[in-house]
Amino acid sequence: MRDLPSGSELLALARDVLLQELMPQLPPEVHLDARLIANSMAIAQREALAGGTPEQGILADLERLYGDASNGRPGLLSRLAHDLRVGAFGSSEQRERDARRILWRLTIAKLRSANPRFLNANGLS
């Protein structure tokens, strides 16, 4: 049990103080650094809010792709990367489609934390 406000709430508040209150008082030559700090805080906040849910969903997809031969979750993403390198899904349109679906889900999940604005600018959310 953790005390409130939560870590992600504190991060959001601290970021707001940095951008709204401190930034106007900082010399222009350090504004870029301040924005990088604010960006880092936003990523950390979004990752804290998302928790492990996106990762679990991707791993479940990978288990479905590889079925009984998956031998557990560790290494499944590496296996997918290897299979894509060697074109292992070329003989099955369905498996290739399933693999591609995982790539989309993985990428969109990462961008929801790292850069949701970029996702939106590309018509995704």
Binding site: R100, L111, A114, N115
Partner: peptide, 11 residues
């Protein structure tokens, strides 16, 4: 972190 932006573009 920007590598993932490139990956979205690849897709």
């Amino acid at each position: 972190r920007r590598a993932t932006e490139c990956e979205l573009e690849i897709l």
